[in-house]
């Protein structure tokens, strides 16, 4: 808490210490444009968090899974401990795949019920999944269900670079209304449909079970929404590099997150060049100058954010040891060598 006092009366400190200290956090999203070092940042953050929490789960929702590359270890759909850690697990899920899985071999015979209903079931299904963002919401709901049963202290999402991962949060009311309407419709016409389709239905199944499924889905999505909109439980870490396009996208993302009411107060600026004094590399010096310009802009624009500056290393950040070294810089600010 003493930290918070310091934060209030002075400039925001350039580390992610505040996230480590905020023990109530359950969901942390790491996002940004492609190729700015999201995966490296999320892995580093996960490593740092594993030192402060009982158990940490790192989930990649990026279809181009990079966690395996970062840790030099194969990860799959199920949470698996990362080598060398006893409280850090990782898993890779495909947000589009999981919805299909869910439909194909959903529990309690969802598919059978759908098939049993013939055209009607498919129509309902199409109707439900034509709502924008519902597939993402569903996959998140599914992940959350899984994660809940596993009881992790904190879950870090390494999101896809499209930036539409959280699109569904934009339509919560619309979606809830639509789903409510669908379930109401099927409630009203359920008996009639049952009468019509009665002969086609397998024993013990009727339209009511479908309605129930819809209702459950609606409730899960509502719950996901409330959790993600709670700044005590969820935060978003923006990753960018000191370049115009990346900065532009970051600004847009932050505004979008604001409109979804998702808390975000940290920016990680990756790949910064700190050339040594009287460095003969013309390109490096020119780039450094450009990066400096955008860093100044970031400082001016995001004075209420923790802006973390990460240097560009001369080696790829892969494997546990290198990631651990890199992750230290998220907590202790990197001290650049003196410049001319």
């Amino acid at each position: 808490m003493s930290n918070a006092v310091v934060l209030d009366d002075d400039v925001m400190e350039p580390t992610l210490q505040s996230i480590l200290d905020q023990k109530t956090l359950r969901w942390i999203f790491v996002g940004g444009k492609g190729g700015v070092g999201k995966t490296t940042t999320s892995c580093s953050l996960a490593i740092q968090l594993s030192k402060h929490r009982k158990s940490v789960l790192l989930i990649s929702t990026d279809p181009a899974h990079n966690l395996s590359d970062a840790f030099n270890q194969k990860f799959g759909k199920d949470a698996r401990l990362v080598d060398g850690f006893d409280n850090l697990s990782a898993m890779e899920i495909d947000p589009n795949g999981s919805i299909e899985d869910l439909l194909a071999n959903g529990p309690e015979g969802t598919d059978e019920a759908m098939a049993g209903l013939g055209g009607m079931g498919n129509m309902m299904q199409d109707l439900a999944f034509s709502i924008p963002g519902v597939d993402e919401a569903m996959s998140f709901a599914e992940v959350l269900k899984q994660v809940k049963s596993l009881s992790y202290d904190v879950v870090i999402f390494d999101t896809a670079p499209t930036g539409h991962t959280l699109r569904f949060l934009q339509f919560p009311t619309v979606m809830e209304k639509a789903l409510a309407k669908i379930s109401q419709l099927s409630k009203q016409f359920g008996p009639m449909l049952n009468g019509l389709l009665g002969a086609n239905l397998p024993a013990g199944q009727d339209i009511n079970s479908l309605t129930q499924k819809m209702e459950e889905l609606r409730e899960t999505i509502a719950e996901v929404n409330t959790q993600f909109k709670n700044p005590d439980m969820t935060t978003f870490v923006c990753v960018c590099i000191a370049e115009f396009l990346s900065l532009y996208e970051t600004e847009r993302m932050i505004q979008e997150l604001n409109s979804y009411e998702i808390d975000t107060h940290s920016i990680v600026v990756n790949q910064l060049l700190f050339p040594k004094m009287d460095n003969p590399c013309v390109q490096c010096n020119a780039r450094r100058k450009m990066q400096k310009k955008y860093l100044d802009q970031i400082e001016e624009l995001y004075d209420e954010f923790n802006v973390v500056r990460m240097p560009l290393l001369v080696e790829e950040v892969r494997g546990k040891d290198k990631l651990e070294n890199f992750s230290k810089m998220l907590v202790e600010p990197f001290v650049p060598p003196p410049e001319t």
């Binding site: 115009f244 900065l247 532009y248 600004e251 505004q255 955008y294 100044d296 802009q297 970031i298 001016e300 624009l301």
Partner: peptide, 17 residues
């Protein structure tokens, strides 16, 4: 210019939006 003066531009954009 968004490139040269990003902070000012972004602030204007926020106001505009």
């Amino acid at each position: 210019s968004a490139q040269d003066d990003f902070a000012r531009w972004a602030k204007l954009r926020r106001q505009h939006d």
